[in-house]
Structure formats: C-alpha cells, structure tokens
Amino acid sequence: MPGHRIFATTFARVYPMYVQKAERKQRTKDDVDRILCWLTGYDAAGLQQQIDASVDFETFFAQAPAMHPKRFEIKGVVCGVRVEAVEDPLMREIRHLDKLIDELAKGKPMEKILRS
C-alpha cells in the first residue's frame, strides 16, 4: 500500500508555509527553525541542507539526527485529527510538527511549545 502523498512532498515546498503561518501571527522564521531543530535534532546547517536538497518528508524525518523524546507529549487536534491517535509513525511525526507550528501561530510561549 503506498503512503500518503505528503510523504513524497518535498519538505522545502511546505517549509515556507510554516514560516508564513508563523509570520502572519507575529512570530518569526527563527521560531519555526527552533521548533524544527528541537523536534528533529537537526542543527541550523543540517536543517538548511535538507531544505536545499529538496528531500521529501519521509527522508527528512528518516535522516533526523535525534527525534526529541518529549514529542510524545504533543497532544491535541490538527486538521481534525487527534495527533496521539495517528497510527502511521511517519504521519504522526508530521502531525507533531503541524501541532507545534499551530501552537506557535496561536501565540503559545516557546517554553510550552518545546515542552520545557
């Protein structure tokens, strides 16, 4: 069975949408990058390398240096789907990221977003 089409979508194609969503709510690209680095373990250079290489979401998460263990504390609904109920592991990681960006856009403090 083929995966969801988002799996083959390039991360570089969606990344600007994350940044735009944040900026519309007076947050910054740096905030988005901080969330991405926290979630995946990429540093700024590694994140930029993934964007420049136009890797797909599947590769982006597969090559992540260290997925944050506190990501399982991310709960709630994104796009009508309860994050913790998503069964496919890759889709769950994508939904974790979506939820973090939503929290950023809703003005939640960074310490709470990063589960500090």
Rank of each mutant, 00 (worst) to 15 (best):
L36F: 08
V78D: 02
R92L: 06
C79M: 08
D31Q: 12
C79F: 12
F7H: 09
I51K: 11
D98M: 11
K108R: 13
D52A: 15
K29I: 02
L97N: 08
K25V: 00
G3H: 10
P65R: 07
M91D: 09
K21M: 12
P16V: 03
M67T: 10
R34H: 11
G76L: 07
E58N: 12
A85W: 04
R5E: 10
C37W: 00
S116L: 13
M110V: 10
R71Y: 01
Q20V: 12
K106M: 09
E87K: 15
A8I: 08
Q20K: 13
I35K: 00
R34D: 09
E58H: 10
V19L: 01
K106G: 07
D33A: 15
T9A: 11
A53F: 01
G80K: 09
D98K: 05
H96R: 08
V78Y: 14
D102A: 07
F57M: 14
I74L: 13
V86Y: 01
P109V: 13
V81Y: 02
R13D: 08
A44I: 12
R115M: 11
R92A: 09
Y18W: 10
T10I: 03
R5M: 07
R24N: 14
G76W: 08
T9P: 01
Q20E: 10
V86R: 06
R13N: 06
D98I: 01
K21H: 07
M1Y: 12
K21S: 11
P69N: 10
L104N: 06
T10M: 03
R71W: 01
I113W: 12
T9D: 08
M110D: 05
V19T: 05
K106L: 07
R13I: 04
R115D: 00
I101L: 02
E23P: 01
T59N: 01
Q20S: 13
Q48L: 09
L114R: 09
D30M: 04
V78H: 11
R24E: 11
L114M: 09
F72T: 14
P2Y: 05
I113F: 09
E84D: 14
M91G: 07
D88H: 15
T40Y: 06
V14I: 15
A66V: 03
D56G: 09
H4L: 04
M17G: 08
H68I: 00
P109L: 05
M110E: 06
L47R: 10
T28S: 15
I35N: 04
C37E: 13
E93K: 14
F61H: 06
R92V: 04
Q20R: 12
A85T: 12
T9M: 13
K112V: 09
I51M: 04
H68S: 02
I74V: 15
T40G: 02
A53E: 11
A66R: 15
W38C: 02
K29F: 00
P109K: 12
L47A: 03
Q26K: 15
E73Y: 06
D52Q: 14
D98S: 10
L114P: 05
M110R: 08
V19K: 06
F11D: 03
E87A: 14
M1I: 11
F60K: 08
V86M: 09
V78R: 13
V81D: 02
F60R: 05
R27E: 02
H4A: 08
C79K: 14
T10F: 06
M1E: 03
M110L: 14
L36P: 02
R27S: 06
V78K: 04
D88P: 00
A12W: 05
L97F: 10
P109D: 07
A85N: 14
I101V: 15
E58L: 13
D43L: 05
Q50T: 06
G41R: 06
